[in-house]
Amino acid sequence: MEKFTKIEGVAAPMPLVNVDTDMIIPKQYLKTIKRTGLGVSLFDEMRYDTDGNEIPDFVLNKPAYRDAKILVAGDNFGCGSSREHAPWALLDFGIRVVISTSFADIFFNNCFKNGILPIVLPQEDVDKLMDDAQRGSNAVLTVDLESQTITGPDGGEIRFDVDPFKKECLLNGLDDIGLTLKNEAAIGTFESKYQAAVPWS
């Protein structure tokens, strides 16, 4: 996994609430057996018409936001399915940070596994960042994971919370499986005890 330390980039505003994983990456793109190449299909049905032409009004089609690295989103972003194709598509497009008042749990977890930082902030902070994001290519935010701060275009700073373990994994690009296998002995011990107590499992 790619490390995440500090990201500086344009923030795109997407105020719609309840953006679901079907919107982020529709089903027809789930047939891939790879993790990469999904960026071009990100937000497919909002981004392209049925002939495959770009819809100019869609935020990521606007010149200012085509290289956005940050998304400022409405409440409950990423609700719906468990498809990790959603963060894969965001990442492949170049989005490394999503900011909202709330996220669906599975999507939230999936982001961390792929070097994307989902940030939960109170409504007033999201509103402010949404305003900043509306400024187009001037909407440059800096997200620093180490210090847990977002710096806006006017120099204002917003602090955010992040789970210490997840932060550590992101900062160092750590592989979860490798970490867990450090506890392999504990798994083995648990397994034999458990298997004796619950032999039908």
């Binding site: 993790r35 468990s82 990790e84 963060p87 599975i106 999936n110 596994k113 792929n114 979860d176 499986i177």
Partner: peptide
């Protein structure tokens, strides 16, 4: 519960 593909591998 539902999990993502990285967790499936895990």
């Amino acid at each position: 519960h539902g999990i993502g593909t990285s967790e499936v591998e895990h």
